[in-house]
């Protein structure tokens, strides 16, 4: 059972950051994971009033605040037009509307969960993560960083990187994914980000001379997969091969993710 001694609605990021330096304190995102933990939190820090719940469009980017919910992503017309509905495809299977109205982008990104649908998409889009102290970090670097007591403020996706196709496989429609797969074509190269391996998503760039089938086979052979309750490693490998090949062909045909 989760015990929280004190709750603070942060008035500024610096206040939140200072409080967060105490390792008995924590930042609450959607609270969906935190709630299930059996732990005692000294101070729960809420970022809800810091204006981080907006998606702002600039000339070349969308800036997605950390407190934007997964449901906001699902419904955002700009992001979905840009990505062929990849945002919708990515978050729609996550439990239910009531859940996605709570789960936040900041919580999903900060957690760097292996099963994360969103992380897979953001990696494929080569997004930037804006941290309060550390500033802008490319998401590929961010996923490798240790868990520090910095705060995810927003995520920035480039309008140039919207050529993506998202797919995932789940045992039931609203379960965690057995595998996530997001393929992309931007900056003159094609690639695939594979998540829920069950580890964190990895990025595989396609070689120019490779056929789609060869590429899919190569990822199948080189990508590390593990087993858990939802699937064996070997099944994940086959799924990865099949979904990658399928997704690349869909991307090449200009199909929308959903």
């Amino acid at each position: 059972m989760l015990t929280i001694r004190k709750y603070v609605m942060a008035e500024s990021l610096s206040q939140a950051y200072d409080l967060y330096q105490n390792k008995n304190n924590t930042i609450i995102g959607g609270m969906l994971w935190l709630k299930m933990q059996d732990r005692t939190v000294d101070t729960a820090i809420d970022l809800s009033n810091l204006g981080l719940n907006t998606i702002e469009e600039t000339e070349n980017t969308y800036e997605i605040g950390a407190m934007v919910t997964l449901r906001d992503l699902e419904l955002h017309s700009g992001l979905n037009t840009l990505t062929g509905n990849a945002f919708t495809a990515c978050v729609k299977p996550i439990v239910g509307v009531q859940f996605r109205n709570l789960a936040t982008v900041g919580g999903s990104v900060y957690g760097r969960y292996g099963f994360s649908d969103l992380l897979t998409l953001l990696l494929a889009m080569n997004a930037d993560v804006v941290l309060y102290k550390n500033g802008i970090v490319n998401i590929h670097d961010f996923v490798k960083m240790p868990y520090t007591r910095d705060i995810v403020v927003k995520v920035i996706v480039s309008k140039n990187n919207g050529n993506v196709y998202y797919t995932s496989f789940r045992n039931t429609k609203t379960d965690f994914p057995v595998l996530t797969c997001c393929v992309y074509h931007h900056d003159n190269h094609t690639g695939a980000c594979i998540g829920a391996r069950p580890g964190k998503a990895l990025d595989f760039v396609m070689n120019e001379e490779e056929t789609v089938t060869d590429y899919a086979n190569r990822i199948h052979e080189s990508c590390p997969f593990g087993s858990n309750m939802r699937s064996s490693a070997s099944y994940r490998g086959k799924l990865c091969r099949n979904l990658t090949e399928y997704a690349i062909r869909q991307l090449q045909k200009g199909e929308s993710s959903c």
């Binding site: 239910g96 429609k173 609203t174 965690f176």
Partner: peptide, 16 residues
């Protein structure tokens, strides 16, 4: 038992 919650024990949802 590993399937000790509705997160792990998957009864059909209406989309299934």
């Amino acid at each position: 038992i590993m399937e000790n919650s509705f997160m792990q024990y998957k009864i059909p949802a209406r989309t299934d």
